[in-house]
Amino acid sequence: MDAPHTAAGQLARRHRFQWWELLPWIAAIAAFFAFPTYLAFGTQLLIVILFALSLDLVLGYAGIVTLGHAAFFGAGAYTVGMLASQLGWNEPLSGLLAAAAVAGLIGFVSGLVLLRTHGLTLLMLTLCTMALLEQAANMGAHWTGGFDGIPGLSFDKILGLFSFDVLYFRSQYLYVLAVLLLCFVAVRMLVYSSFGQSLTGVRENLLRMHAVGAPVRARLVAVYTISAALAGVAGGLFTQATGYVNLSVLGLERAAGVMIILILGGYGRLYGAFVGAVAYMVLEHMLAKAYPTAWQLGIGVTLILVALYARNGIIGIGEALLRRLRGGGQA
């Protein structure tokens, strides 16, 4: 079983589950019992984690710098909302699948066109795609409710068993947690597959990947589509959990917010989305409560400090500390 070479052995083993990978899930379930009055916030947090995880696939692993990822979150959110309000399609799980399909389709089509470019051009193109969708949602008021959105949506029981809990968000929290777990396992498998490795290759050395004959663009379009579908699921969950959808799901603020969260946590690392979302949202929540007018100051200073001194995000700090501890012990 052991690989003949230690480095090769390490490479072969690194996709195995570690004991500490259970910790986030234990913490999430513990939080369910410990903070029963904060479950609405917790549900939002889990949705943001899923959204940030989808962004990590394109931004962290494939190195596609996008400022328009909320396009897919919004597409998913509006798909679920419009299916419910227009067609009376209130079944939650099939709604999520529809959200993933629509967002994935938009990701595929836009990816085919946009991913030939890079740098500022790509940034602007993703931004414009999102703005186009936002304006379309604003103008198609007959279907989308325009500026006001679609309020007061209700959904069927999850699996026909658990009804959505408007007041305490108990079932929403567990439902979102379950979906997040499924998606996370899928992303983890994807990242450690040969497909995921080739994405890292594209990010690190585009020229060499072309030279060894890797189908670079096809890979990029594929990961963009998958990531869009995941973001669509996150958006669909948002609509189902809160019972409304409005233009805020498509805006620059949401796109920039999730990007900040991912960079803060550490991109290109599976758990960066988790750490970043918890750190950012808890900080924002506490600052907004303590200093309602000045919370942005604290967030801004934090972002500047992270950009200057902690290039790999919070997880990067942790890794550096661990390395120093271990290195100090041996040397």
Binding site: L59, V65, G119, A256, M259, I260, I263, L264, Y267, T293, A294, W295, Q296, L297, I299, G300, V301, T302, L303, I304, V306, A307, L308, R311
Partner: peptide, 28 residues
């Protein structure tokens, strides 16, 4: 000047942080 050689993403994070600070400073 500390971020000229940094990744694009760190520059984005830094300048968005700066915007937040400017907005908050003016609001306050």
């Amino acid at each position: 000047s500390r971020l000229y050689r940094a990744q694009e993403l760190d520059q984005v994070l830094f300048t968005i942080g700066l915007v937040f600070v400017m907005t908050a400073a003016v609001t306050l």
